[in-house]
């Protein structure tokens, strides 16, 4: 079964097509390259950009895995909705919690409390 003959089966079968080999191997190559890139970029101190760059590269890799290895690019839209929707909830969970935690004062140590009490 190739990408061309899935149309004959109608839309019900659209996720049955096999991905061409070059695409799988190419994706693998890209993932390996990006892994090297992220290790390489970690050698340098880029200050505030460190984390965003590392996360950016990881996200590109994740998208490659999702869209090609996991067929999401050729699959039913609802599956994408499910997985990206869940990421939205993860984002909300983490960001709300971070936001709240960011507003607290730092923890106090035993020493601090003694000092405060004796002041």
């Amino acid at each position: 079964m190739t990408a061309t003959d899935h149309a004959a089966h109608g839309d019900h079968h659209e996720d049955h097509h096999a991905l061409p080999l070059w695409m799988l191997v190419g994706t693998w190559g890209a993932l390996m390259g990006l892994t090297l890139l992220t290790v390489f970029s970690a050698q340098f101190d880029l200050g505030a950009f460190d984390l965003p760059i590392a996360m950016g590269i990881a996200t590109i890799k994740a998208m490659l895995v999702l869209l090609i290895f996991m067929h999401l690019g050729f699959d039913k839209g609802f599956h994408s909705l499910l997985i990206f929707g869940s990421l939205l909830f993860v984002f909300l969970f983490i960001s709300f919690t971070l936001m709240d935690r960011g507003q607290y004062q730092g923890d106090i140590t035993v020493k601090d409390s003694e000092k405060l009490l004796s002041d």
């Binding site: 991905l19 799988l24 191997v25 994706t27 693998w28 993932l31 390996m32 892994t35 895995v65 090609i68 290895f69």
Partner: peptide, 8 residues
């Protein structure tokens, strides 16, 4: 990543 390729 290699295992992912072989799985796909």
């Amino acid at each position: 990543i290699l295992s992912s390729l072989t799985a796909a």
